[in-house]
Simulated scan of single mutants.
Amino acid sequence: HVFANGFVKNSVMEFVGDGIKNLPMEFRIGIDVMTTETTCLSSIWVTDDKTKAYFDTVGRSDDFSYLTPAPLAKYDRAVDVDLSAIQPMIALPFHPSNVYSIAALKANTADILREVEKEAAKSLDNPHLSLGLTDKIKNGTFYVDQGVIAGCAGGTYDNLAIAANILQDQTIGSGTFALSLYPASQPVYMALMASGAARNLLASGATLRTAFCGPCFGAGDVPANGCFSIRHSTRNFPNREGSKPGAGQIASVALMDARSIAATSVKGGMLTGADEIDYSDDIPAYTFDDRAYQSRVYKGYGKPQKDLPLRFGPNIADWPNMGAMTDDV
């Protein structure tokens, strides 16, 4: 694995190649925010007309420039990805690099899940806890408890609009499986409402929440004890979904793509890859409406009001009284 052997650790990742021109901008953004999990220092992409159009859409035309490697560009190492061979994948607990194709997991479910449980036990402080993943196999089929499409990696307009296509005139059912959706921003939320996608999502039984950063670190939709959640978000480290093993509670998260999560949802939680269903990628173009920002975001840069008292938010206290530092620390 690229992660396991430190292939890109403390490096700058550069995304180049013929395949990039076929990737929508939001797909590229979803990939880019995941580079944090590779332990690289930063990342850079070639830019093209799709990038320019995106900058135009969000009102930042003046910030765009074309970027491309110089003819003599030299790289320390390379990862060659054949995009045409990519299948729907699932990253099992407890790391984004613990990846299998969904097809491979479905073909060898019990053996793979037993191995995941065995490895997970090594990272848990409580020897009495178990993920219980194999208990979720029913008649040879793996069922999950929760789906979440969220935030900077998953909650893009494209992802949620296509999920709405998959969920249109469908239902997630009235069983124990639940689906929660977090748009990446308020403008994305507004675009989903304007296009009608939000209506289709809600009609399916999914919960459409406000835009906030949290499901990837346990600040939203914490699974119930013993539950298994599939999420299009950034990470699935131990306890990052909010469980507390020290108190005898354990849950776990696998990372999947938004389309496969939607496909699993219409099957009532039965693990399903997006390549197993028919759906349309045809969605209304994204329209950027920044009125939510204009109405609410305080623009105080360069305009200090030093005489105004500082107001503290909930659960935030002032600095404690601190004595002056002495000459000898």
Rank of each mutant, 00 (worst) to 15 (best):
T171G: 09
A153W: 02
T176S: 15
L160Y: 03
A178W: 00
A178R: 14
G151E: 15
Q170Y: 05
N159P: 02
I172R: 10
Q168W: 03
T156N: 06
I166K: 08
F177R: 10
G155S: 06
G155H: 03
G175D: 14
C152G: 07
G175Y: 14
G175C: 13
Q168V: 06
D158M: 07
A164H: 06
G151K: 00
T171I: 09
A164Y: 01
I166C: 03
Y157C: 04
D169T: 07
L160C: 08
N159V: 06
S180P: 04
Y157M: 00
Q168C: 02
L181N: 02
A153I: 07
A150Y: 02
A150D: 01
L167P: 05
I149T: 03
L167V: 05
S174N: 15
N159W: 02
T176I: 01
N159R: 05
Y157Q: 07
Y157W: 11
I162R: 11
A153G: 03
N165L: 13
A153F: 05
A150M: 02
G155V: 02
T171A: 04
A161R: 13
Q168I: 01
S180A: 12
I162P: 00
G173H: 08
N165Q: 11
T171W: 07
T171K: 12
L179R: 10
C152K: 00
S174A: 15
L179T: 04
A163T: 12
L181F: 02
G155T: 01
I172S: 09
T156S: 15
N165I: 08
S180K: 14
I166L: 11
N165T: 08
I162L: 05
I166G: 00
G154R: 01
A161I: 07
G154S: 04
G175F: 09
G154Q: 01
I172D: 13
L167G: 03
S180G: 09
N159G: 13
A164K: 05
T156G: 15
Q168H: 14
L181R: 01
T171H: 13
I166T: 05
T176C: 10
L181E: 04
C152V: 07
Q170I: 05
C152P: 00
G154F: 01
I162C: 04
D158T: 11
N165G: 13
N159Y: 00
F177L: 11
T171Q: 12
G155R: 03
A163H: 06
Q170D: 03
T176M: 11
A163S: 15
D169G: 09
D158Y: 09
A178C: 08
I162M: 10
I162S: 05
G151N: 05
T171P: 00
G155N: 01
L181K: 00
Q168A: 13
Q168M: 10
D158L: 14
G173W: 07
I166S: 01
A150L: 02
A178E: 15
Q168D: 13
I172K: 10
G155I: 05
I149N: 00
L179F: 14
G151Q: 07
Y157I: 08
L179Y: 07
